[in-house]
Amino acid sequence: MVSETNNATLVYERPESLTEMPTFYCPGCTHGTAHRLVAEVLDEMGIRETTIGVAPVGCSVFAYNYFNHDYVEAAHGRAPAMATGIKRVLPKKMVYTYQGDGDLASIGMGEIMHAAARGENITVIYLNNAIYGMTGGQMSPTTLPNMKTTSTPLGRDVEVAGYPIRMAEIISNLDAVSYVVRRSLHNPANIRKTKKAVKTAFQTQASGMGFSMVEILSSCPTNWKLSPSKSLEFIEEQMIPVYPIADFKVNPEIKNIKG
């Protein structure tokens, strides 16, 4: 994407697949980073004009305002079902959901598991920040043990509130899925790796290889009550030990995709 203007080479600019609307996300929230990566991938693959996104309920409920392509807004947790409906009548379009951990791993557990089990040829961008952001910081299914939230004021007690759910690991056990990995947004190197995974996920769909999901560890400075920088440290030091960055399922055919 290097282009020339006068004596200046443009190294990076805001992707075309984002609209001009500033996001409502809090300063330093890495939802924006994930949006940007998806948009960059759509630009690079040249698929902005043939892609349909499905927004969730949660902080990214307004994702459809930020992406410069066709979008629908799902009921809480139902994005994979809605995406299924779209993909089954428009199989040639690129269809993806963008969901958080409350949406995907709690209320939408049924829909995500079965979309994956069917090998639905869609891409799922799953942001895991271990908390309900929009409602003000309650425990989510991925909240870490002992982590304080407004609904676990003394910390998540695993004896009564159970343990975090590792969605990438669980979904990777389903036969029909082609690409399931976990990535993180806590530093530049990992952001680049995340982008590469997002691209591979979309390429998996473009090649008709079925279900792809990138679980992305993301920050919530406001509800974690940490600065944006400290939040990235929290991902690295607290979240990654519970949610390891790894490829959990990669269809061997994916290596043959030319990207």
């Binding site: 629908v72 079902a81 809605m82 299924t84 829909e111």
Partner: peptide
């Protein structure tokens, strides 16, 4: 919700 998605198209 699948009907909803398909109907949106």
């Amino acid at each position: 919700n699948m009907v909803y998605g398909a109907a949106c198209t």
